[in-house]
Design a protein around this nucleic acid. Structure first.
Length: 280
DNA sequence: AGTTGGACCTGACTGC
DNA sequence: TGCAGTCAGGTCCAAC
């Protein structure tokens, strides 16, 4: 599942690979991939013929800033299973992509999305903070905006479970299930406890854990968990799964204390992985 | 405005 | 072997 570290890896690789290229053609084959537009043709018309000036990322979503008379942003919402590959034009297809961008320089960007929670979204302008997709997003966790005071304020008024609050993009952008579990472990906090009940020192531990775990995730170029879904734009898996302490380790010994990792259910059916000994 | 739970989606897995 | 049921979780939506 692509979260901030996976999206940042994709952003970084796309920046090196396709900045300055022109989108000659966009073919959107899966109707759910263009569902935020009136038609596949409408979406294609908004980006075709435009030059990629810059590649950015907000939370879990990489995006392309496109030049031209009407500056446009093409957002890659990756959802659960979104994958981006960049290949030479004519490279063999192992499966049909949900969308295909033909770029100048005989490069193809293929967007795969097995479970179709993802989408391509074109928005007018380059000011992503004004776009409906991101307008209410919380700060980037690795930026200077993610301060002690901000987190204290955001957590103090939320009674929901800590894991749930960490995954709320309006609180802090870019965290999903995998990193939420690992962050709670790193902070020594039970994912099922109420966010508003954290003390000041606990919130500081949490803030450091968020930054540390996500930075490690980026260093490892993302995580390719057991389903092997995420790979980078060259098809190479990430390495963060080797460092995971709790996610998908139910019943296995805690790396710190040896106690078996426990799995419980969040409301809504999502699983929480945690160490009953290390996390309070 | 926050909380909760369901819907969407498909391939892998489990149990009969 | 085959089929039904369950699970996975990002995001949106409705009800409270």
């Amino acid at each position: 599942m692509p979260e901030l570290p996976e999206a940042e890896t994709i952003r970084c690789q796309l920046e090196a690979e396709i900045t300055g290229a022109t989108i000659e053609r966009l073919e959107v084959r899966h109707r759910r991939t263009w569902r935020f537009h009136s038609s596949a043709r409408d979406l294609a018309g908004l980006v075709e013929g435009r030059r990629i000036a810059r590649v950015g990322r907000r939370g879990k979503a990489p995006y392309l800033l496109l030049d031209g008379r009407h500056p446009t942003t093409l957002i890659f919402r990756l959802g659960m299973s979104g994958l981006v590959r960049v290949l030479p034009a004519g490279a063999p297809l192992d499966r049909p992509p949900a969308a295909l961008l033909e770029l100048s320089g005989r490069k193809h960007l293929r967007f795969f999305d097995q479970r179709t929670f993802g989408a391509l979204i074109a928005r007018p302008g380059h000011d992503i903070d004004q776009m409906p997709d991101f307008a209410r997003y919380g700060p980037e966790p690795l930026s200077d905006d993610f301060t002690r005071d901000y987190l204290a304020h955001a957590l103090s008024r939320r009674a929901a479970k800590l894991e749930h609050v960490l995954m709320n993009q309006h609180v802090v952008a870019g965290i999903g299930k995998i990193y939420a579990d690992e962050i709670c472990f790193r902070a020594g906090l039970r994912p099922g406890r109420r966010a508003s009940g954290l003390t000041g020192p606990m919130r500081e531990r949490l803030r450091h854990a968020i930054r540390e775990v996500l930075a490690e995730g980026i260093d490892c170029r993302g995580s390719s968990a057991r389903d092997e879904s995420y790979h980078d734009i060259y098809g190479i898996p990430g390495r963060f799964q080797d460092r995971m302490c709790v996610y998908q380790r139910t019943g296995e010994p805690c790396r710190a204390c040896g106690a078996p990792i426990r799995r419980t259910r969040m409301p809504g059916g999502r699983g929480l992985h945690w160490c009953p000994c290390c996390q309070k």
